[in-house]
Each structure stands twice: as structure tokens, then as C-alpha cells.
Simulated assay, not measured.
Amino acid sequence: MKNYFSKNASILLITVGLMSCAQEQQRSKAESDVKAQTVSSIEKYQAYTQAYTSNTVLTQNHATGHVGDLFFTHWKDGGSTSLALDTEGDFSVSWEGGGYNYVGGPGWHSGKKNRVIGYRFNEDSGATYITLYGWGYDKNMPTSNPAHLVEYYILQRWTYDPSRDGSFGKTFVSNGVEYSTYRSLRTQQPSINSTSTFYQYWSKPSQQRELGQDYEINFADHVKAWADTGWIIPNMNNFDASDDPTYQVMAVEVFNPGKDGTASGRVWDASSQ
């Protein structure tokens, strides 16, 4: 009986081991396929997309790509602004005063509804917005419907109040912070899909976030709050738009800055922490 059990136990262990090995191989292959597909798809933006394995500084008008595992966007329509990045998520934006618009920062080449974003800002000389920022796009919706393309902001610090230009949605609490939502319409303005008419969704906290502290943004709470008033974000994980993927980044935005300034911080994915 003892020998019989040992023999069958051995067979069982071997079988389980083989199954685990096969499952691991399937999982590895699936991950490789996703990475290959991502690389192949993102090459569509090869005019801008670059990959860096060490610290870098961007000064051109438009650049997207990766520094280490993090995606970045860097866009301006004039003026002088630079974005410094490292592979660990630290970044710094420096700008000169002038009549132009800039937005940039690190994050991910796609948005995820359940992502928890960790960040810390140590310096802010008066950026227009410090915000979680991203896009959703549905190429199958008619372009006459502004909801086919959505630019979203979850503000953390600001010098311009977007609520003056938007329609109020609702007030809700996420991570102990009270936010109010707004929606505004952009008519024939620059976007990730050329010049388009689209919606902007906003979440604005009742108080600005302090510098020098670690914070988390539960993105799903904001998606739900927007949806509660009928403001749905289209697909946040595609390469269908003409100019950029549907990225999600912790961004610094300045428009028509009156003087030179700097904002610096760090971003990370806190979903599994």
C-alpha cells in the first residue's frame, strides 16, 4: 500500500509539474505576443516614438516614446520647454514664459480603468495644471459625436480653474478626497487624432494637493463618477488615432505662462501595492 501510494503520488506530482510548466509556457507566450503586438502597433508613430534606456532630456515640439518601462508624451505648439526623464519615473518640466501651450510627463501608452497611480511632486512654480491626463478614442463612432474622442484630467494642482468653462456633473469622494466633475467641449482643436471636436472630462478636488507627499489616484472611481452622469470614456487602449496612442500620464501643462518655471516629481503604478 505504501509503495502504491508513493508511486501514484510521484505520477501525480510529475503530472502537476508538467501542467504548471505548460501553463507557464502559455503565459509567457501570451505576454510575448502582447509585447510584440504593442511594439508593432506603436511603430505607427515612428516619426515621434523613441526608446531610451537611460536619463534623457527632450526639447523638440513633439515626442512620444519610452524611458525604461514608462511611456512619455512631450508636446508644445511653440515656446521653449524641456522634459527631463529617468527610467525610475522621476521627471522635471522646465518652461520659459510666452504665448504657447505645453503638456508632457511620464506614464503608460494606454489607460487602464483599474489602474492606481502613485505620484509625488516636490516642486511647482505655478503650472497651469498638474494632473493625471489621458485620452480615449473610438474610431467606429461618428466624428460628429464629440464623445468619440475624450481628453480627461484628474487635477491635483492648478492655477486656472477649468470649472468656469465646463458643465457640472457631480461631487464624489475618492481616497478621502472630495472631487467635482465637469465636462467641456473642444471644437476643432489639436488632439491625438489630428484637429478634432471632442469632449474634455475633469475631476477637480476641493483642495489642491500639497507638495512633498506621496498620493494615489484610484482611476476607476473617476471613470464611474463620469459615467454616472452619462460621460463615457471610449477605448483607452488602442493605436487607432492618427498622432498618438491613447496614453495615460502624470502631466504638467502650461499655457501662456507669464514667467519661467519648473515642476518636478515622480510617478509609479501603485495598482499592486
Rank of each mutant, 00 (worst) to 15 (best):
S163E: 10
Q248V: 13
H66M: 08
S272K: 11
H222E: 02
W158F: 10
F5P: 00
M141L: 15
Y179R: 04
V254R: 13
N140E: 12
T195G: 05
I233V: 15
V67Y: 01
G104V: 15
F255S: 04
A227L: 06
W108I: 05
N61S: 10
Q156A: 07
I14D: 14
Q50W: 04
E88H: 11
K170E: 08
L155R: 04
E24K: 03
S32Y: 13
L211P: 12
G78Q: 12
I232M: 12
Q60I: 02
G65W: 13
Y153Q: 02
N8L: 06
N193I: 05
K204M: 12
K2A: 07
Y182Q: 05
I42P: 00
Y100P: 01
W226Q: 01
A30I: 13
G89F: 09
G68Q: 08
L18Q: 03
Y160T: 11
T56V: 15
N114H: 13
N122W: 06
T143I: 10
G104S: 07
V34M: 09
Y119A: 04
G107H: 05
S10N: 09
S206H: 08
Y100I: 00
S10Y: 09
G78H: 07
I192L: 08
Y102I: 08
T262C: 04
T197A: 10
F172I: 00
N3E: 05
Q60E: 15
E210D: 12
D165K: 15
V249M: 02
G89M: 10
Q23P: 01
K113R: 12
G169S: 06
Y119N: 09
G176C: 07
P257I: 09
G166Y: 06
A36W: 05
P190M: 03
D244C: 05
Q25T: 00
V249C: 06
G78T: 14
E151S: 12
Y153M: 03
Q25M: 09
D165I: 12
E216Y: 02
A227V: 03
W268Y: 14
I42H: 02
T81G: 02
S54Q: 14
K35G: 04
P190N: 06
S41F: 09
N256T: 15
G230Q: 09
L185D: 03
V34G: 02
V150H: 04
R266M: 13
N140A: 10
S206A: 12
V103D: 02
L85N: 04
F121L: 11
H109K: 02
A30F: 15
T87G: 01
Y129T: 00
F255L: 09
F91T: 06
A30S: 08
T38D: 14
F121Q: 05
A251I: 07
K224T: 15
D138V: 05
T128L: 13
G258T: 12
S163T: 10
S10V: 03
